[in-house]
Write a protein that binds this DNA or RNA. Sequence first.
DNA 1: TAGTCGATGGTCAGTTAAAGTCAATATCTA
DNA 2: TAGATATTGACTTTAACTGACCATCGACTA
Lengths: 150, 150
Amino acid sequence: MRLSDIITEMILKLIDESDQNVAEIQRNELAAMIGCVPSQINYVLTSRFTPEHGFKVESRRGGGGYIRITKITMDRSNALMHIINSVGSSIDSASARVLIENIQERELVCEEAAEVMKAALSNNSFKDIPVNVRDQVRAAMLKQMLVSQL
Amino acid sequence: MRLSDIITEMILKLIDESDQNVAEIQRNELAAMIGCVPSQINYVLTSRFTPEHGFKVESRRGGGGYIRITKITMDRSNALMHIINSVGSSIDSASARVLIENIQERELVCEEAAEVMKAALSNNSFKDIPVNVRDQVRAAMLKQMLVSQL
DNA sequence: TAGTCGATGGTCAGTTAAAGTCAATATCTA
DNA sequence: TAGATATTGACTTTAACTGACCATCGACTA
């Protein structure tokens, strides 16, 4: 059995045992328990606990640091997830705007958040970004912002 | 639990209990009560009770010395304007994140909006933007987003 | 009134305790 | 066997914590 699978199972088990769909781990501790290098934990997190997989990962460095993995379950989040997955690797300005207005109307995000998203994606913000990567950057950013609302 | 968190909570509680948004402590006494070195109190004060966090700290040495921590209250849009004006034409990722966390803590924007801002400015979103314009784009975008919340 | 002494708080450089990144290498799988 | 996936470990960054030494204040005393 692969290391990655062992780590994945451990984390899933921790989430399952918690009543909040959250697992809070200490990277070094978990690595020691499993017997792998700490950075392997990062690999698993970035390859299998991504937003696309329905997870949110937060962390803090320094003494008393931690990594918190949350499983997304709610309806609103499901709808958002669906939208996130529908955004490809590139999106033009007009489509992005329509999309944001749509999720706002459906009350998937609050008005303030929607305003911030529109501001972030505005032409004004993008004017120094080379044209050839704009739509790509916009898509990545849009997804990142939507994920933050899960 | 971290020492810093314990100290932070103690101070916040003292402020909360006072009717003037002020806590007055004796450094050595508090340190002894918690069981840490006195300078740890300073660490907490400089890392979590700064003006950016909305606090003012005054102190006096010598016999009968004290440390007085005051919570500043300011009108929301004035505070936001002040912050927008303090952002130059370029800002690095870490500074931007700190800034957003501050305005969130001070409740100048709602949590959702702050999350969106952090997501938009994350390194992840900026991956495809040429390094030489990143900080510039970030500053423009940050200001644009803050303005959207006025 | 000047000096000094005890009681405070302040500073800073160094240590420890995390987590993050990245490039090199290994292993699988189509 | 080529390309995707997995694994490793050296190096980086961030946050918390400590202790030795410094600065300031107030009171007391010669």
